[in-house]
Amino acid sequence: MRIAIDAMGGDNAPQEIVAGSLDAARAYPDVTLILVGDEGQIKQCAGANLPTNIEIVHTTEKIEAEDEPVKAVRRKKDSSMVVAARMVKDGLADGMVSAGNTGALMTAGLLIVGRVKGIERPALASIWPTMGGNSMLTLDVGANMDAEANHLYQYALMANAYAQIVLEQEKPRIGLLNIGAEPGKGDKLRKEAYPLLEAGPFHFVGNIEAREAMNDKCDVLVADGFTGNNMLKLIEGFGLGIFGELKKIFYKSALTKLAALALKSGLSAFKKKFDYAEYGGAPLLGIDGAVIKAHGSSNARAFRMAIHQARAFLKGDVLGKIRTDLSAGGEEKA
């Protein structure tokens, strides 16, 4: 199993990316990690004793966070992200992980790696914690701003395969993000998608309102990219705000500091539950390879978890299951 690593992508590249890759290489001897990027910088970060399952492919360019995605992918042909994507396309790597420019990664996935046959539009999936302690896979969170009903059906089909294999959920509950729980609610898109999802070869549990989404009502939450991305950013912003306000309260006086000390273990567990580093990256489902988007500000642990996710994706043959499910009835919905 060979996974290409965009060593130059992300806010903390290449230091944290290389550190996370070294940790993953030592933890997973069955995986060869190919660090793609500036060889001098990578070696400076990695030190002298590289694990035997680490390779380096030198590139001279990198895609910056502010670069326009399509132009960057087309013009920066020797960038770490583009070269990693080309390796997946050419069969030199089975998958890739990048913490770089999200739009550019989606563009590279589409234009270079290509789509799974039968999937009209790939979707970016994100793993969210729920109040019940379980994980919820939400898609699309930004790959496509516009969607049709059959696209939402395909999102559910792909997410069902991913949740079964990577998240080890035997019978994932599939929900449709909507403004009401009753069938027939919502706009034209949701009304058309509901019967398709209801007839799908997965466990559809109906509409899920946004206020109920974090209460362990489903294992997979299906949305169009515009709605899903807005919900993702709202939850991220609210979470950061909550932790910020709690910090102000607990550091207000000597008495509140004592209270914080007494609650330290519980607060640490609560914060860990909502820490993106614990969940790895976001798979770009529908691309013909394991393409994982790590958080842009990933530290070494977060990036190692993203590699863990790519490894589980490949070991479980998620793409094979998606293709099987499509041939068993998915394509006729398109």
Results as ranks from 00 to 15, higher is better:
residue 65 A to R: 13
residue 245 E to Q: 15
residue 145 M to R: 11
residue 176 L to W: 00
residue 19 A to C: 01
residue 98 S to K: 04
residue 257 K to H: 05
residue 146 D to S: 13
residue 279 Y to D: 05
residue 253 S to K: 08
residue 233 K to A: 02
residue 76 K to T: 14
residue 334 A to P: 05
residue 317 D to H: 15
residue 226 F to H: 05
residue 182 E to K: 05
residue 328 A to T: 06
residue 137 L to S: 06
residue 269 A to Q: 09
residue 258 L to H: 15
residue 273 K to C: 01
residue 162 Y to A: 04
residue 277 A to S: 14
residue 27 A to H: 10
residue 219 D to S: 11
residue 274 F to E: 04
residue 32 T to W: 14
residue 262 A to N: 11
residue 14 P to R: 06
residue 240 L to F: 00
residue 227 T to S: 01
residue 47 G to Q: 05
residue 10 G to K: 00
residue 198 E to M: 10
residue 36 V to H: 12
residue 177 L to K: 02
residue 152 L to M: 00
residue 34 I to F: 12
residue 261 L to K: 09
residue 57 V to Y: 03
residue 28 Y to Q: 09
residue 301 R to V: 12
residue 169 Q to L: 08
residue 319 L to R: 15
residue 136 M to T: 07
residue 121 R to E: 05
residue 31 V to L: 09
residue 152 L to Q: 01
residue 175 G to Y: 02
residue 50 L to Q: 01
residue 143 A to P: 02
residue 217 K to I: 11
residue 134 N to A: 13
residue 167 L to M: 11
residue 74 R to D: 13
residue 324 T to C: 11
residue 144 N to P: 15
residue 216 D to R: 06
residue 63 I to Q: 01
residue 43 K to N: 11
residue 157 L to I: 11
residue 238 F to D: 08
residue 176 L to N: 01
residue 28 Y to P: 03
residue 238 F to Y: 11
residue 264 K to M: 08
residue 71 K to T: 15
residue 306 A to H: 07
residue 234 L to N: 07
residue 92 L to I: 09
residue 169 Q to I: 09
residue 283 P to L: 12
residue 10 G to D: 01
residue 247 K to Q: 10
residue 222 V to F: 01
residue 22 L to E: 05
residue 305 M to T: 07
residue 77 K to C: 13
residue 6 D to C: 08
residue 266 G to R: 03
residue 170 E to M: 10
residue 301 R to I: 15
residue 59 T to E: 07
residue 13 A to K: 00
residue 27 A to Q: 10
residue 23 D to I: 09
residue 327 S to K: 03
residue 329 G to C: 08
residue 100 G to I: 03
residue 177 L to F: 06
residue 200 G to T: 01
residue 288 D to P: 12
residue 256 T to H: 00
residue 100 G to T: 07
residue 311 R to L: 06
residue 267 L to P: 00
residue 311 R to N: 00
residue 315 K to Y: 14
residue 89 K to D: 01
residue 226 F to S: 05
residue 63 I to L: 07
residue 87 M to R: 10
residue 299 N to G: 09
residue 178 N to T: 02
residue 247 K to S: 10
residue 235 I to S: 00
residue 244 G to Q: 11
residue 37 G to F: 07
residue 245 E to T: 13
residue 246 L to M: 13
residue 195 P to V: 04
residue 93 A to N: 09
residue 322 I to N: 04
residue 133 G to E: 09
residue 72 A to H: 10
residue 48 A to T: 03
residue 200 G to F: 00
residue 115 R to Q: 09
residue 108 A to D: 02
residue 249 I to T: 04
residue 112 I to L: 14
residue 154 Q to S: 04
residue 65 A to L: 14
residue 190 R to T: 14
residue 32 T to E: 13
residue 253 S to N: 09
residue 247 K to R: 10
residue 264 K to Y: 04
residue 294 A to S: 06
residue 195 P to Y: 07
residue 33 L to Y: 12
residue 332 E to V: 14
residue 150 N to L: 02
residue 19 A to R: 06
residue 110 L to W: 15
residue 260 A to E: 10
residue 279 Y to V: 06
residue 245 E to F: 13
residue 157 L to A: 06
residue 262 A to H: 11
